[in-house]
């Protein structure tokens, strides 16, 4: 399989701190790859190395078949987690500027910028200054700045944060349509549901090291199945089950709950206990959620998500 991005034994140190430790990764062309991991795990450092903002201390990075990531910078698109715009520039100008920085010529960048802005419903804002934008609109403009030069590999760092449902859907559609066009999308997120919904592959980094890597199904199959309950009532019962030693992990979200029976516990027994106390709308045994996998991978530590 052709790879849009390959990292082999990449290490990056800042002084005595190792931010990324011996990381190897193969990202197939045309896939959607989800980067997950707690804050400070090394996601952004990894991304910055791919974007040749940082250089690795050891290891090789091959981007779009080129072992000099610098050389293909113009074929990459990057939407960082911390995104900003020049407040006094007009929308049309700033989107075109990002295009020009990626090597587009001036006229082409201008045309494409206007076209994109119109397509994304910002047509009447083309001549307005960025400072007039709401946060969501600003994010849209930043996304367009990332995509204007039709990058072959797009890296989106937390693209969904701060978006309303409509724009979230727009973002998701954009990502999916890029996949359809054969582009490769890497995106990082703290929201496991989103990752589960759209990613082909999941990669997780924790404490500078890779802990998970593979297709969603692969990742899930390596973990035991759990019970998922949709319910109404007092969730205290789950913790009682836990203290009775029937289940060992409980992720109670208030209306739904995921739990994992201890070895030898019959799920039927758990169901019996539950119906006495709460009203159950759904009860099934299924693959663990990405959330559970994430939490287990970080060793049950409190994650600052």
């Amino acid at each position: 399989m052709e790879h849009a991005l390959t990292l082999s034994h990449v290490t990056k140190r800042f002084g005595s701190f190792t931010a990324v430790d011996d990381l190897s990764l193969n990202i197939p062309t045309g896939s959607i790859y989800g980067f997950i991991g707690p804050n400070g795990a090394g996601k952004t450092t990894t991304i910055r190395m791919v974007m040749s903002i940082f250089y690795p201390d050891a290891g090789e990075i091959t981007v779009l078949g080129n072992s000099q990531p610098e050389a293909v910078k113009d074929r990459l698109g990057y939407l960082p987690e911390e995104k900003g715009l020049y407040k006094t520039m007009r929308l049309g100008e700033i989107v075109a500027y990002f295009g020009k920085l990626k090597g587009m010529n001036s006229g082409e960048a201008k045309r494409k910028a206007i076209d994109l802005l119109e397509r994304y419903g910002l047509g009447e804002w083309i001549d307005k200054k960025c400072q007039a934008l709401s946060k969501g609109m600003g994010q849209k403009v930043q996304l367009l700045g990332t995509l204007i030069h039709d990058p072959e590999l797009v890296i989106l760092d937390e693209p969904f944060s701060g978006l309303d449902p409509v724009n979230m859907e727009l973002m998701r559609d954009t990502i999916l349509s890029m996949k359809k066009e054969g582009r490769t999308v890497i995106f990082s997120t703290h929201v496991m549901k989103q990752a589960e919904e759209i990613c082909d592959y999941i990669f997780m980094i924790h404490k500078s090291k890779k802990v998970l890597d593979g297709t969603l199904a692969e990742v899930k199959s390596t973990h035991e199945r759990g019970i998922q309950v949709d319910y109404d009532g007092d969730g205290a019962v789950f913790h009682e089950l836990q203290s009775q030693g029937l289940v060992d992990r409980v992720n109670d979200a208030g209306k739904t709950c995921e739990m994992f029976p201890t070895d030898g516990t019959d799920p039927q027994q758990i169901l019996k206990k539950l119906v006495e106390r709460i009203s159950i709308r759904r009860f099934d045994l299924r693959d663990p959620s990405l959330h559970e996998i994430f939490v287990r991978a970080v060793g049950g530590e409190v994650v600052d998500a």
């Binding site: 960082p80 911390e82 995104k83 020049y86 990002f98 920085l101």
Partner: peptide, 17 residues
């Protein structure tokens, strides 16, 4: 400083050194 506080640096650095 404006570029820094507006979080533009990273976007720019993905295109220029």
């Amino acid at each position: 400083i404006e570029e820094k506080s507006n979080r533009l640096i990273e976007v720019l650095l993905s295109s220029v050194s």
